[in-house]
Computed example of a mutant assay.
Amino acid sequence: MMLIKQFGQAPIGNRLKKLQASAHYDTKTGTFLNIHETPTLTEGYSMSQVMYNFLFKKHPRVNPSQPIPVIKTDITSLDLTQNLLIWFGHSSYYFQLNGQRFLVDPVFSGNASPIPGSNKPFKGTKIYSAQDMPVIDYLVITHDHYDHLDYPTILQLQSKVKKVICGLGVGQHFLYWGYGLQQLIELDWHQKLNLANLTELYTAPARHFSGRGFKRNNTLWLSFVLTTPSFKLYLGGDSGYDSHFKELGEKFQGFDLVLLDNGQYNPAWQAIHMLPYETLQAAHDLKTKRLMPVHNSKFKLSVHPWDEPLQTISALNAAGSQPLPLVTPTIGEIVWLDQPDQPFQHWWEQLE
């Protein structure tokens, strides 16, 4: 039963009517659309070719031979007046901003796939669990893929979550899994939510796709902007490179920190996951003061060496005409949001 329930549930009834009214929804196909045409595979690639390459060809160093270094921070004891962020590997992280607690795309079950035990995390990275989390003001979900929306984790977190913020249609999964309607805030692109203490949350596009079963794009994928009177944060979710980065950079006149997709990429699916040089360009488009590259260092979802994302973006950034401070914490290390000069180690260079 658990295996079946984790697939979630497609929107029905009034919830279906709500998403059908979105300007980004195509009623003919029953799917959400990206801003620009977004092919599943880059021209010149075939799905059979990609699957054969992934399943049967040998690729060097896709998994680290040593455990990933980690720090076990006691999150429940952190001072809520401090603005900070803690990364759990891949695209899962906790942050405190302006006296509020946020948890983004948590995956604590030790699997990034609907098939149990089929995509285990790298050694050393599974050190946090739902039990380690404090009460969460806002559980933020960028989209419903298994490496971002983890059924066992969501069940374990329910009693600690005040509100869930997600894209249109994604709330149906939460209702199916036992969450209450009063816990859910489902949003379209380009919407604004006023939070406490003069904190504002904006939804924005991403160039990606969605789906937990055979049906794709029946729920909406998002990126997020959070602003306070003194700080601007962009949470990019999964995204291929597109015009929305530059548009957001102009609209919000730059950011203090952006978290962008940089890992599990492949030229074969470049439209939906940025290559490192595109991540760097997106950061410049967003006019950010600091860049944190995520979607790496925990799960093998592509065929590149496990440390290539961080190695490549670091080298490209250093060689550029306007290098950005890169935020590259070890898993569990505290990132102080109000300390723009905080140094970080190239921890991946210590491993094989």
Rank of each mutant, 00 (worst) to 15 (best):
E200W: 12
F214S: 14
E37C: 10
Y176G: 00
S210R: 04
F252R: 08
N296R: 10
L201P: 07
E250P: 03
R207F: 02
P152T: 07
A130R: 04
S46H: 09
F32W: 03
L149I: 07
I75N: 10
E43T: 13
L97D: 03
T328M: 10
L181D: 15
H90I: 03
Q350W: 04
G320L: 01
T27Y: 03
P340M: 06
D261C: 14
P60E: 13
L233C: 02
Y176L: 05
P39I: 05
N119W: 06
P69A: 02
P106T: 08
G169K: 01
I4M: 14
W347N: 00
K246H: 15
E278D: 14
K126W: 06
L187C: 13
F214K: 13
Y45A: 06
P329D: 07
L168R: 05
L351K: 03
S239K: 11
G236V: 07
P340K: 08
Q66S: 11
T228C: 00
G254P: 05
P64G: 02
F209G: 15
W177K: 02
I71C: 05
N14M: 11
H244E: 06
D74C: 10
E247Y: 14
G13Y: 04
T227N: 06
S159M: 11
I165V: 14
E308I: 07
I154E: 10
D132E: 01
T125L: 02
R212P: 06
S302V: 06
W347A: 01
M1T: 15
K246N: 13
E308W: 13
G240F: 02
A10S: 12
L248G: 02
K163V: 01
S91M: 12
Y94P: 01
L201K: 07
L220V: 00
K215V: 14
A130E: 13
P340R: 06
I127S: 04
V70A: 04
K120N: 11
Y241K: 09
G263C: 11
Q281C: 09
G320Y: 09
I313W: 00
E200F: 11
T328D: 01
I165Q: 06
F122K: 01
R61K: 15
D307M: 06
L184W: 00
E333T: 03
N53A: 13
S210D: 03
K17E: 15
W306D: 02
V225I: 15
M51Y: 11
C166M: 11
K162T: 12
Q311W: 05
V303N: 15
A196R: 10
E250W: 12
P305Y: 12
M47I: 15
K232A: 02
R290C: 04
V303Q: 12
N262G: 04
Y93P: 00
I68E: 03
H244L: 06
L41H: 08
Q96W: 01
T31E: 12
M292F: 12
H173C: 09
